[in-house]
Write a protein that binds this DNA or RNA. Structure first.
Lengths: 151, 151
DNA sequence: CTTTAATATATCGTGTGCGATATAAAAATA
DNA sequence: TATTTTTATATCGCACACGATATATTAAAG
């Protein structure tokens, strides 16, 4: 009846589906390391810069502590990171890589290339992937702006 | 160290974030109807064509029954749909709208337009949104192809 | 210096997603 | 027809997301 209520006309459903499918395509690579996609995001941040506080991580991932804290707790239990209170400000919690967490970088570094490669082999073109980046950044920026306005 | 392991270089993280933020922007509109984004997806399918079997729904949403069945059970408990076994093939489960489920269409029909409008007001351009659609479709098609190959 | 407000993180409850497995019915095969 | 295989859906367990709330610590105000 209403064309705007048809699934095929909705950008949001495409984003929802694309995100699910592409993160799922990471899963087989992560399986032998016992990590998940969100845990991989945390590891990337720490590989880039170790010893960050929880707030740094939530800010980069655009997630809240109610999501990130449980992820960090699981990662600590698995021995990938440690969490310790800051001495300067004991409200803050500093997240650091263990040796095991550091070692994973070498083992995982080929995964993103590998996935990109297999997507390109299946008909997707590099220019298509490149074209999406600024569009997604603009969209994320726009929606993020709205979200902030309501606070 | 490895540029491909930087968050800022990853398409997947952008998709993951964009999907989260855009579906979250639906939430305030759904709140007064007590539904969620995935429940809204099911409703849209049924508004388009009532009395579909579970398999039709999983196929359109690219989800499995382990996700869809619990959603349908919650929707049935809320009185939005009913589920009944097919008489022709009692393995199949036919999902139908209740009157309440049907009534929601009128109340929700402006939501997608409303969201699109507010995104456009904040600097996103209509051409940007339109440009994303075929790119996402191509990506979804490509990853879907890979997923099927492994079966 | 005490009270109040702001900040940083954690906890709790609910609803997905999804891998793995179970169940039941229909279809195919022996 | 009895057995096996396939199909359709459901169940279970775990890890997110996220709204709401709680806790602890620091900063600001009185």
């Amino acid at each position: 009846m209403y064309p705007q209520l048809k699934l095929d006309n909705q950008l949001c459903f495409r984003l929802y589906t694309a995100a699910r499918l592409i993160t799922a395509s990471y899963t087989p690579f992560f399986k032998k390391f016992g990590i998940t996609y969100p845990q991989y995001l945390v590891l990337m941040l720490l590989w880039e810069k170790d010893n960050q506080v929880v707030g740094d991580i939530t800010e980069r991932l655009l997630l809240e502590t109610n999501t990130v804290t449980p992820i960090l707790q699981r990662m600590e239990k698995q021995g990938l990171i440690i969490r310790q209170k800051s001495k300067a400000d004991s409200r803050k919690c500093i997240v650091s890589l263990t040796n095991e967490g550091k070692r994973l970088e070498e083992q995982i570094k080929e995964v993103p290339n590998c996935l990109a490669h297999s997507i390109l082999e299946e008909g997707m073109e590099i220019d298509d992937l490149k074209a999406m980046v600024p569009l997604l950044d603009k969209l994320i920026g726009t929606i993020g702006k709205q979200t902030k306005q309501k606070e």
